[in-house]
Design a protein around this nucleic acid. Structure first.
Lengths: 145, 145
DNA sequence: AGGTGGATGAATATGCTTCTCAATACGGGA
DNA sequence: TCCCGTATTGAGAAGCATATTCATCCACCT
């Protein structure tokens, strides 16, 4: 399996774009974090290594990483945009606590298969999907609202 | 079944808020459209009836309608925020063509049941969920990219 | 090594959404 | 029905995240 870094380099050269120290640093930093990061969080971490880097470069690189299929954007419905490294990771969806923000990654074969079947019924070729389950976790559920 | 308008009035009075001509007009306009609307589209339509209405009022009312459970926000991943009237409507998810924007409403019992089961396994009480399937519709799939 | 088109950082712009504030109007109570 | 307190409104300004501009820089092919 190609590493995300290799995949990114390949993607860039296919598009006649260039691998640069900044792009490399941004991807490496993201991978090290293994977390859901907002563009600003990522920018902060990257800046600790190379303070000269610009916000714009982080946004531009994030966009490229999404296009390259290495990173994907998330929507936790809390108004903050987030990304996670998806390359080489098994696909998963999210179960989110609306009170405390707790976030559980889930994967369910039954659902995945039904999604494919539904798409097929409508003549669609599925490229990806997003599923978010929102509710209260056991701890928060116990407390009164 | 209460109409959305009644439900809104009830919600407002519970919260010690007031029903106003603007709020009524915004909701009525939204219901007439029976479509996925962005705040701006809704604003444009409302303005045709009452040109004196302000954008802020549309945003404020939309927020109230979501809180009241009459309208829900959608995320078609195209950078535009949209809403749809959900009161009195059966819940559904969306199958979206990434090329032409075609949007099919879907509903699948198998998936809905699995979602509940998964939440339960993790001790969660589900309040709602979002599921979006992205891909190419039959027409767009035939054409080359 | 040299040339060229892409990449960068800083500042600025953009676009959507929210806030501020003074003026207005709803709606419960007399 | 009129009053009054409080929520609401419209307009403009502010915020915030993201995108763009532009002059300079540099990665990569030959």
């Amino acid at each position: 399996m190609k590493t995300p870094q290799d995949a990114f380099t390949t993607y860039l050269s296919e598009k006649n774009l260039k691998m640069t120290p900044q792009r490399r640093l941004i991807l490496d930093t993201f991978i090290d974090e293994k977390q859901h990061l907002s563009p600003e969080e990522l920018y902060d971490k990257v800046k600790k290594v190379d303070p000269s880097i610009g916000q714009a470069t982080v946004y531009r690189t994030l966009k490229l990483l999404v296009e390259a299929g290495i990173v994907e954007s998330l929507d936790f419905a809390d108004g903050v945009s987030r990304y996670e490294v998806s390359w080489g990771e098994e696909h998963h969806d999210h179960l989110i606590c609306e009170r405390c923000g707790k976030n559980i990654e889930i994967l369910d074969d039954v659902i995945e298969k039904r999604q494919e079947a539904i798409a097929k019924e409508h003549g669609f070729t599925l490229s990806h999907h997003k599923m978010y389950l929102y509710g209260l976790c056991s701890k928060c559920g116990r407390k009164r609202s």
